[in-house]
Simulated scan of single mutants.
Amino acid sequence: MSATLYGLIAEFRTGDALLEAARRARDEGYCAVEAYAPYPVEGIAEAVGFPRQRVPLFALLGGIVGAAGGYFLQWYSAVIDYPINVGGRPLHSWPSFIPSTFELAILGAALAAVFGMLFANGLPRLYHPIFNAPDFEQATRHRFFLCLPIHDPHFHETRSRDFLQSLQPMSVSEVPA
């Protein structure tokens, strides 16, 4: 295998052809299949074996941390650090802490979701070898691409090229690293 090769890429005319090609690639044994399309293709995530994201878990944890931090901050300032008897209410008057606690839970969840999404997607990524593929700029307009990267354990340069040719794409080309 060439050290200057990222993988092989096949270009398809329709989203259905890309979906069928991705399913066949997974059935063939490829586990690191990458698909690129100008718009969402229904079922492509399952076809390429896209893992479930943990962004909802990040958002839940961010909400819990935000709520706990907001409540603790209010409790500490009202009960421990600077206790003031206002209108005879108890120092730990939890109902008055609820609005700020709720808002900080929402803020924490939103920030954790945004940063979790960026982390899960490997962003910001300023360079990816796929951008060097021939005609890849068409992926944002009207072409669909399926890439078999070299780091896939099932990848073999000649067998993978023959497999991609058997899918009847418009073209098959190498992606330089």
Rank of each mutant, 00 (worst) to 15 (best):
R161Q: 14
I98D: 03
E42T: 14
R24K: 07
A105M: 07
I130P: 04
S96N: 12
S171Q: 07
Y76K: 11
I64A: 15
F145Y: 05
I84S: 10
L19V: 03
A17E: 06
A35M: 02
S166R: 01
I64G: 15
S2L: 09
V79Q: 02
E20L: 11
T14L: 01
M1V: 10
L118C: 03
A47P: 05
A21Q: 07
V55K: 01
G66K: 04
W94R: 03
G63W: 00
I80F: 09
L107Q: 00
G116F: 01
E157Y: 11
C31V: 15
Y6D: 07
H92E: 12
G66R: 02
D162P: 02
G122Y: 03
I150Q: 14
I64L: 15
Y39F: 15
V172I: 13
A113I: 04
A78M: 07
V175Y: 08
W75H: 01
F58L: 14
L146N: 10
F163S: 03
L60C: 08
D135Y: 11
T140H: 13
I9L: 06
Y71D: 07
Y30R: 00
S77N: 13
I64T: 15
F144W: 09
Y127M: 11
Y36H: 08
I106L: 06
E34P: 10
A22Q: 05
I98W: 02
V172R: 03
R23L: 12
C31F: 14
L123R: 01
R159D: 15
E137V: 09
A113F: 04
M170D: 15
V48N: 00
R141K: 15
P83N: 02
G87H: 04
A37Q: 03
C147T: 08
V175K: 03
I64P: 13
A3P: 10
L19G: 05
Y71L: 15
P40W: 01
A133T: 09
A32S: 14
R143M: 13
L167W: 01
F50N: 12
W94A: 10
A37V: 03
A17I: 01
A113M: 04
F115E: 11
A21M: 03
A177W: 12
A109F: 07
E103W: 07
H92L: 14
G62N: 08
G7Q: 04
A120P: 08
Q168A: 13
A112T: 07
Q168T: 13
A109Q: 10
F12A: 08
V55F: 00
H92K: 14
R54H: 12
L91C: 06
F115H: 06
F155Q: 05
P56L: 01
F72R: 09
F115P: 09
F144I: 10
P134C: 10
E42W: 12
F136A: 01
S100W: 13
G122L: 02
A67D: 05
V65M: 11
A35P: 00
T14S: 02
W75Q: 02
A21V: 06
G108K: 08
L111R: 12
R125E: 11
L104D: 11
Q53V: 13
L61T: 11
H154G: 08
F12H: 07
A10G: 01
A35T: 05
F97Q: 06
Y71H: 11
I150N: 12
P169H: 04
H128M: 06
R143K: 15
A112V: 05
T140S: 15
S166Q: 00
T14A: 01
S93E: 15
R159E: 09
T14C: 01
M1C: 11
A59I: 02
R24I: 04
L91P: 09
